[in-house]
Amino acid sequence: MVTLKVNGKTHALDIEGEMPLLWALRDEIGLTGTKFGCGIAQCGACTVHVDGVAMRSCSVPVASVAGKNITTIEGLASADGKLHPVQAAWVAEDVPQCGYCQSGQIMAAAALLKEKPNPTDADINGITNICRCGTYIRIRRAIHRAAATKA
């Protein structure tokens, strides 16, 4: 039995401790906003926050995050529905194309802004999430926009 705290809600799951967090979220809890891309912690489509830190959920065993605060894309907006500044900036810049990587991109950007409220372009380059549509230019703009909104 593994207990996961996801978006403020506690889930007691009868699953293997080594099951990657991604599959517990998607197949056991039913939160499909977090995506499966490469399965080897490279592409970043599965990025979630664990105690506020961006992590590749495809490669995080659930046993290692039991009891910690996990936030997925579904839980990023505030409880009253107000979009997180990164989400609002994403809408303003019309960032997504196919959208498959965007949950992970947004989670990575939100974690970056938490650590560095006014990131430089070099800081933004530190995000290694892949976007095969190539929306990087708008991602960069949106992160700068979100930083300006927060300030």
Partner: peptide
């Protein structure tokens, strides 16, 4: 014009094929 698919792509609501349950 702003894309009509953007809002559901920033909050995890968009359902892709792999999300079928």
């Amino acid at each position: 014009l702003p894309r009509l698919d953007t809002p559901v792509k920033v909050n995890g609501e968009a359902k892709f094929g792999i999300d079928t349950k």
